[in-house]
Simulated scan of single mutants.
Amino acid sequence: MTVQPAKSAPDRTVLEGRFVRLEPIGPQHAADLYAASLGEGVPERYRWLFEYPPQSVADVENWIAAVNAGPDRYVTVIDKASGKAVGRQGWLRIFPDHASIEIGGIYWGLAMARSPLATEALFLFARHAFDDLGYRRFEWKCNDRNEPSKAAAKRFGFQYEGLFRQDRILKGESRDTAWFSIIDGEWPALRAEYERWLSPENFRADGVQRTRLGGR
Rank of each mutant, 00 (worst) to 15 (best):
L213H: 09
L170F: 12
Q28Y: 02
A99C: 02
I106H: 05
S82Y: 11
A189C: 05
G104T: 08
R204M: 00
V3L: 13
S115K: 07
E40G: 03
E16N: 11
P24E: 06
L15S: 05
A81I: 03
R114G: 03
S56Q: 08
E139A: 09
L117C: 04
G83K: 01
G157A: 08
W91N: 07
I25L: 10
A81V: 07
R204H: 14
R114F: 04
L33A: 05
A111E: 14
A151N: 10
K7T: 03
R204T: 06
Y160P: 00
I182P: 04
S115D: 08
R73N: 01
A126Y: 02
P43W: 05
R165Q: 14
L190W: 07
S100M: 11
T211W: 04
R127E: 13
D11M: 04
L122F: 13
R145A: 13
H128Q: 14
A126K: 02
P200F: 03
L213V: 08
S37T: 01
G134H: 02
Y52M: 15
W63D: 07
T119M: 08
Y52N: 13
G214R: 11
K171S: 01
R168W: 08
G90Q: 03
Y34C: 11
T177M: 06
R155L: 13
L213A: 10
A66W: 14
V3I: 15
G215N: 12
R45H: 05
I64Q: 02
S199D: 14
S56A: 10
R45P: 04
G70Y: 10
R210A: 08
T177P: 04
S174E: 00
W63K: 11
Q55K: 15
S149F: 01
D59R: 08
N146H: 15
P24V: 03
F123T: 01
E120P: 00
R18L: 15
F125T: 00
E195Y: 06
V3H: 11
G109D: 12
